[in-house]
Simulated assay, not measured.
Amino acid sequence: MSERFGHAEVGITLNTYSHVLPNMQKRLADNFENSIQIENSSIDKKGKIL
C-alpha cells in the first residue's frame, strides 16, 4: 500500500491510516463468526452436510 500511495516509508502509511484498523478488525471478526455459524448450521449433529 505504501508504494501505491507514494509513501517513502511504511511508517508514514501506518501513521496515516492506522486509525481505520480497529473498525476493520471488528468487521473481519464479525464476518468470520457469521461464516462459521452458517457453516455449522449446514451440518447435522453427526457431521453430515445438509
Rank of each mutant, 00 (worst) to 15 (best):
L28G: 03
Y17R: 03
D30M: 03
R27K: 13
G11S: 15
N23Y: 01
I38L: 11
V20Q: 08
V10G: 11
P22C: 05
N23Q: 07
A29C: 03
E9V: 11
N23S: 04
S18V: 03
G11W: 11
Q25P: 02
I38V: 13
I12W: 08
F32A: 15
Y17E: 04
A29W: 01
I36K: 14
I38M: 08
S35Q: 14
L14S: 12
M24P: 02
L14C: 11
G11H: 11
I36G: 00
S41F: 02
G11A: 15
Q25E: 14
V10R: 13
I36Y: 07
N23K: 03
V10D: 15
L14K: 07
N15Q: 14
P22A: 00
R27C: 05
I38T: 13
I12R: 08
S35L: 12
E33F: 01
F32Q: 14
D30P: 04
E9K: 15
Q25D: 08
N40C: 01
L21R: 04
H19L: 03
Q37T: 08
S35H: 11
G11R: 15
S41N: 09
I38C: 01
V10A: 15
V20K: 08
V20W: 05
S18H: 14
A29Y: 05
L28Q: 06
T16R: 08
R27N: 06
L14T: 12
N34T: 04
K26R: 12
V10W: 13
L28Y: 06
R27Y: 04
Y17T: 02
L21Q: 02
A29Q: 08
N40T: 00
V20R: 08
N15A: 10
A29I: 03
Y17S: 04
E39H: 04
P22M: 00
L21P: 00
K26I: 07
P22D: 02
L14M: 12
E9Y: 15
D30H: 02
D30R: 05
L21N: 02
E39T: 05
L28F: 09
R27T: 10
S41M: 06
N31H: 09
E33V: 02
S35W: 06
H19G: 05
P22G: 04
A29H: 07
R27H: 05
D30N: 07
Y17F: 11
I12N: 05
I12V: 13
L14G: 05
I36M: 08
V10S: 14
S41P: 00
A29V: 03
S18R: 15
S35V: 08
P22W: 00
I38G: 02
L28N: 05
S41I: 00
N40V: 01
Q37A: 05
F32H: 14
T13K: 06
G11T: 13
K26H: 04
I12E: 13
Q37W: 05
L28M: 09
K26P: 02
N31I: 07
F32Y: 10
E39M: 07
I38Q: 09
T16Q: 08
E33W: 03
V10Q: 12
G11L: 10
N15R: 13
N23C: 01
N34V: 01
S41G: 06
P22S: 00
L28E: 05
E9F: 13
T13P: 04
Q25A: 11
T13M: 13
N15Y: 06
Y17N: 00
N23I: 05
M24H: 07
L28W: 01
V20L: 15
S41C: 00
N23T: 00
I38E: 10
